[in-house]
């Protein structure tokens, strides 16, 4: 399958040595839900802004739908970028934004638009600056989903949305994605909430790619081991450990690597129990110890 989004050594540097994005090479396959994860300031938004022609790269190359996105109406009409920090002109109402967005996306679905407005209880005739943070986010979600753009970027799309509204977003995203497969790149901090929606995960940290893997594969990349301190200590010796805790005579460690037959035998013999590591915990551990992320590849 050829990639729908591809970057080669993509970098965005600012004066004073700030490397917002540094040598990023990724390839995202079409019609999948990809997650872009990382801490605040890791470069997630910068990457999306480059991919949608909002910013100019310092060096490197990128392809979106086979072409460079900058100043490329053909590419941009097939993409939709929902950014957390989107500003709206004074006096604009949601309906003003929607009226124009509708004309810019050939695949726009008005029925879905109405459904989303109703579900998110978005007051479309009220001035945007009088809306709550959650309602502001809802505008982006309506545009992002109703656009049905073949490549859709969601950058922290649900700031201020409560749990109910977030679930609504996931449900709509899944339902519409199933009916109309397209490429979604979603950046979020709420990793556990979206873990089951994802097929592919890219984690960036300080502008560099830390992890680029399928979600399924990532799930098997680490595990927790717990048991008696001496047993755990003996087991983790010579293995990659990202976190370790002890409580009295018991210890707990997060170990990188699959549990192969040899490891399983060793675990059973030492009377150690294992449990899965959540995607969120894994990302947290790996962003704390970047050199291990590289080692775990």
């Amino acid at each position: 399958m050829t990639a729908v989004i591809e970057t080669t050594s993509l970098s965005k540097h600012y004066p004073k040595g700030v490397r917002a994005l540094d040598d990023v090479s990724i390839a995202l396959e079409p019609n999948r839900i990809h997650a872009l994860l990382g801490r605040n300031g890791a470069g997630k938004t910068t990457l999306m802004q480059l991919l949608t022609g909002q910013l100019v790269a310092t060096s490197g190359d990128m392809r979106v739908l086979g072409d460079h996105p900058f100043e490329n109406a053909q590419v941009l009409s097939q993409t939709c970028f929902i950014q957390e920090s989107q500003k709206y002109p004074d006096g604009f109402r949601a309906q003003d934004v929607l009226a124009v967005a509708r004309t810019l996306h050939p695949q726009w679905d008005e029925d879905l638009e109405r459904q989303l407005i109703a579900d998110f209880r978005l007051p479309t005739d009220r001035q945007i600056k009088k809306l709550s943070r959650g309602q502001l986010s809802a505008i982006g979600i309506v545009v992002g989903l109703a656009s049905r753009a073949p490549v859709t970027f969601f950058d922290e799309p649900y700031l201020g949305l409560d749990a109910v509204a977030r679930q609504l977003f996931y449900d709509h995203l899944l339902a519409d994605f199933a009916e109309h497969p397209r490429t979604i790149l979603l950046s979020t901090h709420l990793i556990d909430e979206v873990a089951n929606l994802l097929e592919h995960v890219v984690v960036i940290d300080e502008g560099r790619v830390l992890i680029d893997a399928d979600a399924d594969e990532l799930r098997g990349r680490a595990y927790d081991v717990s048991g008696r301190v001496d047993a755990v200590t003996a087991y983790v010796a010579g293995r990659e450990v990202v976190a370790q805790q002890r409580m009295g005579g018991l210890a707990n460690a997060t170990v990188i690597g699959p549990i192969d037959a040899a490891a399983r035998a060793e675990l059973d013999a030492a009377d150690l129990t294992t449990s899965p590591v959540s995607l969120q915990a894994l990302v947290v551990h790996l962003t704390r110890t970047p050199e291990l992320a590289a080692a775990s590849r």
């Binding site: 996931y170 899944l174 199933a178 497969p181 089951n196 929606l197 994802l198 097929e199 979600a215």
Partner: peptide, 15 residues
């Protein structure tokens, strides 16, 4: 179906 399952379990349809 794949899509019913995906929506019911709130997981990716590909999965």
């Amino acid at each position: 179906s794949t899509n019913e399952l995906a929506q019911f379990l709130r997981i990716n349809p590909a999965t």
